[in-house]
Design a protein around this nucleic acid. Structure first.
Lengths: 105, 105
DNA sequence: TTTGTCAATAGAAATTTTTCGATATTTCTA
DNA sequence: TAGAAATATCGAAAAATTTCTATTGACAAA
């Protein structure tokens, strides 16, 4: 199977959770520190840390340290790539598998 | 937490799998029967049946019976809605949570 | 350099997801 | 109507995810 399906699925999995989706939404207005994000949820600090790791490992979110705080922001380019990948999947393409012959036709 | 995050996350979860993402890609060229889809993967028939149920329950895919076969097709409107929901999440909005005051500011 | 604050990691329990073999259901055809 | 073909459902095992408590690590301020 083509790599693009694995890469796209991994990014989608990272945001296929209401909490992480809301975090991305929050970050869309600009960077926020972990403690600020934590305020919005009824979860423990390690749980948020895990969620942020999922988002950063999927390259959807950047992080930087400023003193004691970690600030998170969206990886805009990567998000755009994800949207484009989705558009490609959702719309017909000439080299689509379904244009090949099969025994069922 | 807002309902839109749950609804969107559920749809995303349905396609956050390389196999199901490829199935959507295949369907983007037009409807296909289950047996035709099964040909493309090294999985058993019950496994595909489960995957198709996930996609149809997320309303991303329609199904219809024609004789012995079940034909699947994309639910174009719903896919469009998903893309729009994602765009909203990815871009800044005036009522974003991060515009509210907090103790950290 | 000690102490307090913020975030990451370790380890574990609970839940969800994936995937299978076996079986049931639906429909066509002989 | 009996058998074959396509798909769905059941029940279970394995793997992945979620989320916690406890602890560690990084940094700043006193």
């Amino acid at each position: 199977m083509e790599q693009i399906y694995f890469d796209t699925a991994k990014a989608l999995k990272a945001i296929s959770d209401p909490k992480r989706l809301k975090i991305v939404d929050m970050l869309s207005c600009g960077e926020l520190c972990a403690c600020r994000i934590l305020d919005e949820f009824h979860i423990t600090q390690p749980t948020l840390s895990h969620d942020m790791r999922v988002l950063t490992e999927a390259k959807l979110v950047n992080s930087r340290r400023d003193g004691k705080n970690i600030y998170y922001s969206l990886h805009a380019e990567r998000l755009k790539e994800l949207q484009e990948a989705l558009s490609n999947v959702f719309t017909s393409s000439p080299d689509c598998i379904c244009h090949r012959k099969s025994d069922h036709e």
